[in-house]
């Protein structure tokens, strides 16, 4: 069961501002989904390894070579979608 307090904490971890109304609205819905997830408790997974990757790939690398076309962006391209910039920097809010 997810409590309102849990939800506040998860909202913080997810950086999603949740109003009292949101918490009211989400709590039962999230709980119904979590409740559905408990179905997995019935499965015996003793000794079963997790599948992180569905294909047995390993050791995929790139060489230490500067990528040609399609690699680096110009500063202008890099900043082209930024809502706020200053002197070639992205501009973020104050830290504290």
């Amino acid at each position: 069961m997810i409590t309102r307090k849990d939800l506040t904490h998860i909202g913080w971890l997810s950086r999603l501002e949740l109003s009292e109304k949101d918490i009211e609205k989400y709590t039962p819905k999230l709980n119904s989904v979590l409740d559905y997830f408990t179905e997995l408790d019935d499965v015996d997974t003793e000794g079963v390894p997790p599948t992180y990757h569905v294909l047995p790939l390993s050791n995929v690398f790139r060489e230490d070579e500067v990528s040609a076309q399609g690699g680096s962006l110009t500063q202008e391209e890099a900043l082209s979608n930024a809502p706020k910039t200053q002197d070639g920097f992205f501009k973020a809010p104050r830290m504290m």
């Binding site: 680096s72 070639g88 920097f89």
Partner: peptide, 16 residues
């Protein structure tokens, strides 16, 4: 594949 030699360059000029 972005170059590591950015130390004297303008900000956000070695990004992809």
């Amino acid at each position: 594949g972005c170059v590591t030699d950015y130390h004297n360059d303008p900000p956000n000029s070695h990004v992809c």
